[in-house]
Amino acid sequence: MTYVAGRMQVKPNKQPVIVSVPICHYEDTQSAKASRQQLKEAIYASLFDMNVPAVCAVNQATLALYAAKRTSGIVVNIGFQVTSIVPILNGKVMRKVGVEVVGLGALKLTGFLREKMQLNNLTFQSLYTVRTLKEKLCYVALDYEAELSKDTNASYEAAGEGWFTLSKERFQTAEVLFKPHFAGVQAMGLHQAIALCVEHCHFADLPGDNDWYKTIVLSGGTACLPGLAERVEKELHTLLPPYMFNGVRVIPPPYGADTPWFGAKIIGNLSTFPGHWCVTKKQFRQKPRLSLIW
């Protein structure tokens, strides 16, 4: 925090801080609630020890939704090791409805591409090179079987390592999201987990707009792969009955990998900020068990 404040040339004791909190402890159980509470208190205590005047802690999924200029919907966050499908109503995570978690993320896709490259005798010096090739060359096929018959060769020059040419690996890598068994993972596909979350939201029959869950926002660096939003929407059209699917809109990360940051920026620019968004040091010391929005 001291380093960041120095780089920004601001005084920590003069600026409220917005913290993006990892999506974790998903369940609506007492143990999960206790873990979330413990994490909250650790974050707040650490920042207040640095004399920050007020802190606003919001989970990454909610920030991604705000970046899409929505307060209700489903956020699909493809993280480093897991993917989370998070229903959010009026800015609040609906854990009682159910957060779906798929046990694969960006690391698994990078590892899958590495193995494909090794099988094709493509040599590289580091996993960073593989990740770069994933980000620059890979994409999601709208129709996987049809894509197999196409010429999909493309090349990219990686800094310090020269040119690499990939072919079917370009779309086979992202296909792991829909067919986890390609990478040896026993889990439901991304589209199946999203459809399950949509069904839970529909039958939860919560007050307010009946279609609140039909905006689906993608988040995370891997979610920026071209074609992902279109493929997810196509798969949901197949999996869901018309009365659930009609009106569904899948939105790519509005600001790329930095989407949660832009969500925090929107909060910071509100006329009501810090106001009710933040907890002050005095409030935290008086009521360490405050119920916070994430």
Rank of each mutant, 00 (worst) to 15 (best):
I23Y: 00
Q30T: 15
L228E: 08
K33R: 11
S35T: 06
E147R: 00
I267Q: 03
S271P: 07
Y3F: 10
N269G: 11
V93P: 11
Q118R: 13
W212R: 04
P254G: 08
I266S: 11
V198K: 00
L137E: 08
P53V: 08
F262K: 04
V232M: 05
L122E: 08
N210Q: 11
E157D: 14
L119G: 14
Q38T: 15
D151F: 06
A174R: 00
Y243N: 15
V86T: 10
K69R: 07
P253K: 02
D49V: 04
A159P: 10
L142E: 13
W261I: 15
T83K: 03
L122T: 08
Q286K: 15
E27R: 07
L177D: 07
C138M: 05
S149K: 06
E147A: 13
E100H: 01
Q283F: 02
G103F: 02
C197V: 04
H200S: 12
P254F: 04
R231Q: 11
I216W: 01
I266E: 10
N120G: 06
S72P: 08
H191A: 15
E199L: 05
Y66N: 09
K282I: 13
R131W: 03
G79A: 06
Q186D: 15
A54H: 02
F164D: 13
E175D: 13
V93W: 02
S219M: 00
T132H: 01
K108R: 09
P12L: 13
A158L: 05
L177Q: 05
A195S: 12
I23T: 14
K265F: 10
T165R: 02
H191G: 12
G208R: 00
L206R: 02
D205V: 03
L270A: 14
D211P: 03
M244A: 07
N51E: 14
V232Y: 00
L47H: 03
Q38K: 13
E161C: 09
E145R: 08
L122N: 06
L119I: 08
G189A: 06
V10E: 08
L104P: 07
G184W: 00
I23S: 07
H191C: 13
L240S: 10
A146D: 04
A193M: 01
F171D: 11
K116W: 04
P253E: 05
R36S: 12
Y128G: 15
F178R: 01
N121E: 11
L240D: 11
F164A: 14
R285P: 11
G73N: 02
V279W: 01
M94Q: 15
A141K: 00
R285V: 15
V232I: 15
R95C: 09
A68T: 05
A229T: 09
N59I: 11
L133N: 08
L206F: 04
V55H: 03
T110H: 04
T280G: 06
